[in-house]
Each structure stands twice: as C-alpha cells, then as structure tokens.
C-alpha cells in the first residue's frame, strides 16, 4: 500500500505517494526526475547513487524512501547555484577528473561531504572519503587531484 510522505530534496519539499519498498534512488529518479544519482549496481557496492542526507554520504539504493523523511537530501542537481558550478564541480571539470561521467555525481557528493567537515584534508583523507565510489575510467588520479586542488583554494 502506498504511503504519503514528504521529502526535502535540494531545499524543496515534495509530497509524494510511495510504495514502502521503493528506495530513495528509485523515487529520486522515477518520481522526482532527478536522474543525477545513478544506478550502477543497486547493491550498495559502487557508490554511483551517493546522495547526502543531513550532510552525510548515503547510498540511496540502500535507503527506503519512507525513511528519508525529515532529512535534508542533497543530490547533484542541488549543488550548483544559479547556474554557477560548485568549486568541486569546477575543479573536476578543469582537472580532467571526468571521463564517462557515470560515477561523477556520486564522487562529487562524497567529496563535498568530506570538505564540508574537513576543508583541508590530506591526500589519504581524500582517498578514504572516496573509497566507496568506484570508477573504471579515470584510475582516480585526476579525481584526487581535483579535490586536493579545491581544498587549497
């Protein structure tokens, strides 16, 4: 039986009717049209579906939508403001940290969760923060560079 719930995504609240077995990832993508969070494995292994709940990184494929009520949900779509890229996004662009782009939204959100808590991380801390986000294209080198560079500015 569908349940009615209210989700706050990127600062906007949405009233929705949702089946309880729906994950946050499914609701974001299919009901709210926010397709930035990707389905790479759907088993919590790849990190492509990472979103922030109250500033912490979560795998939206392993969160029931009904349990995301009352939390501030941030997806990649909410990161740039008025068409201006967030510094992490800008740095990913400039440093060639993007190839196919499928893991990118999750990577950037994991990086944001780190930098919000720890604006001057070491390289080891950056790697630790990204350890739940798989990438098969870049070898991670330029991703780490991009984040270290953001932290410098």
């Amino acid at each position: 039986m569908k349940q009615s719930l209210e989700l706050t995504v990127n600062g906007q609240s949405h009233e929705l009717l949702v089946d309880p077995h729906r994950t946050l990832l499914e609701v974001l993508r299919e009901q709210l049209g926010l397709t930035g969070a990707k389905e790479g494995c759907n088993l919590g292994d790849c990190g492509s579906c990472t979103v922030l709940l109250d500033g912490k990184p979560f795998l939206s494929c392993l969160v029931l939508a009904v349990e995301a009520q009352g939390r501030e949900i941030l997806t990649i779509e909410g990161l740039s403001q008025n068409g201006k890229l967030h510094p992490i996004q800008e740095s990913f662009v400039q440093h060639g940290a993007v190839q196919c782009g499928f893991c990118t939204p999750g990577m950037i959100l994991s990086a944001k969760a780190l930098l919000d808590r720890n604006p001057r991380p070491t390289e080891a801390e950056v790697k630790e923060a990204l350890s739940g986000n798989l990438c098969r294209c870049t070898g991670y080198v330029k991703i780490v560079e991009a984040i270290m560079e953001t932290a410098k500015t």
Binding site: G47, L53, K56, F58, L59, L114, S131, G132
Partner: peptide, 9 residues
C-alpha cells in the same frame, strides 16, 4: 569500517 556511505547508514 567499510566505506563512508556504509558507516553513515
């Protein structure tokens, strides 16, 4: 333990 996302949840 595990990865940041798993530690959050």
């Amino acid at each position: 333990f595990s990865r940041p996302q798993i530690r959050s949840a």
